[in-house]
């Protein structure tokens, strides 16, 4: 045995030890799903996909509120989401049980809500898409008090419901007289 053999053994053993330590550290610090699709943790995709859904759809509201559903689906506001005005599904229902009451907008809040979309003064609103009114001109034109809120004439779910009914009735009355 040459006198240098010990050196060789020391070098070999340290290489093996360092490689082992390196592999152990690599296994310890690289996440399990890393590199499955690319240089990132593939499990992050599943984690994002598992996030709880907070908004339902209009259909999830209509299941328990058939009366509102009938009116909402008949009128001109069918494309409006229930949850935009009333709040999210998950604030109301958890595990098929009612866990919270969603606030109902009242008085001037309703007018503010209506004018988010229906305000003529905001010139950017496309008239092809939506009918707009100027306040308080609209109230003056309709011969009502300027303190009136929108929902005193317009049903919020089907805006022309009462208007059309009134027109029908007055039409009949005119025909009779």
């Amino acid at each position: 045995m040459s006198k240098h053999a010990l050196h060789l053994i020391v070098v070999m053993v340290s290489i093996v030890a360092m490689a082992g330590a390196g592999l152990a550290l690599k296994a310890r610090f690289i996440p399990e799903s890393f590199g499955l699709y690319g240089a990132y943790r593939a499990d992050a995709i599943d984690e994002e996909a598992r996030r709880a859904v907070r908004h339902g759809t209009n259909a999830s509201c209509f299941g328990c509120h058939p009366y509102e559903a009938t009116i909402h689906l008949e009128g001109d506001h069918t494309t409006i989401s229930c949850e935009f005005c009333h709040g999210t599904y998950s604030d109301h229902i958890t595990d098929k049980k009612k866990t919270g009451t969603l606030p109902v907008k009242k008085g001037q809040e309703i007018t503010t809500l209506c004018l988010r979309c229906h305000n003529t003064e905001i010139k950017a609103r496309s008239t092809i898409v939506i009918k707009t009114v100027g306040m308080p001109d609209h109230l003056a034109k309709q011969n009502v008090k300027v303190t009136h809120t929108c929902n005193q004439c317009h049903h919020v779910h089907a805006p022309l419901k009462y208007i059309n009914e009134a027109k029908k009735i007055t039409g009949l009355m005119e025909a009779e007289s």
């Binding site: 599943d46 996030r51 709880a52 859904v53 339902g56 759809t57 259909a59 999830s60 328990c64 098929k96």
Partner: peptide, 18 residues
């Protein structure tokens, strides 16, 4: 197949397939 439970965190009731 990708480890997702599709009913997890979903609102109950009939949900349309959008």
């Amino acid at each position: 197949g990708d480890g997702i439970n599709f009913q997890e965190g979903l609102p109950s009731g009939e949900l349309p397939e959008e």
